[in-house]
Amino acid sequence: MKEFKILAVIVALVAVTYYGIEPYAHHVMHPEPAPADYAFSDLKNVDTTLKGDVANGKVLVEANCIACHSIEKEGYPAMMSDSDAASSYGVVPPDLSSAGHLYQTNYLANFIFDPVTASNLKHKYPEGGAKVHPMPSYNWMAAQEIMDMVAYLQSIPKATYVSESEERRADFIDACGRCHSMAYAGISARTPGDVAKAYLGATPPDMSQYIKSRGRHYLENFINDPQRLLHGTGMPRVGLSEEAQTHVIDYMEEIGDAKKAEREDLGWKVMLYMLVFAVFALLWKKQIWRDIH
């Protein structure tokens, strides 16, 4: 029993130290932000209760969007190569084929209305400042017209994928791949690094190990609204729906922590092996010490 008392003292000392240097220190260094808001409820410029008209939306999109944006799935190809588009606009404009699925409805409507406010980049593009967002505001449009365009974008059927992994990869590329590379997945940013640096203020980092360096929880909050965790960053709020964001983070985990399943499956087996070893060692010790005590 004395040995268990000693063990208890050691466990207590180690537990206090561990609590101090891990959970407590992390809590102090990284205070928990307010939970992610997937409704983007701070954006209120467009009445999203209006029902959009797909046919009218298509007409409006053709008239207003495809000069800069491609919609490959609908037969509107990109006008320029990625590098030309990047030098023209600062960043490669997104293809809109998946926009209706990636971006949350309220965000998408408000982004069309006023990109700077929706993407939370007022510090970068102040009103009347020299720099302007490459996408103009459509705040002169009626809310109904904006909702028509949203309805059209959402009506574009989602591509079919052979696996969930392929779908997650496609979502990652569409949502992040214009600026971010992911070398471990063989994904290169569509906007060249030096152009992106000029546009964003810093070279967007490679995402290969971000699931490890940031962790799922941080990524959830960060992608939802980068300014809350990294004030002043050039990264826009991209307005991913909860589902699309989960796809993106799952894909980052699939690439960045590729051996997770193998690790978790092997772990308990090794522990079980050690338990068997320990029990045999205990029995052997008891047998040997029988003559000693």
């Binding site: 772990g267 060692a281 010790k285």
Partner: peptide, 21 residues
């Protein structure tokens, strides 16, 4: 050593818990 092996055995369960999880 018979006693040490026993201690090592139980300790390694903890060690591998940390290693994997």
């Amino acid at each position: 050593l018979s006693k040490d092996f026993m201690v090592v055995g139980f300790f390694m369960i903890f060690f591998f818990y940390l290693t994997f999880y």
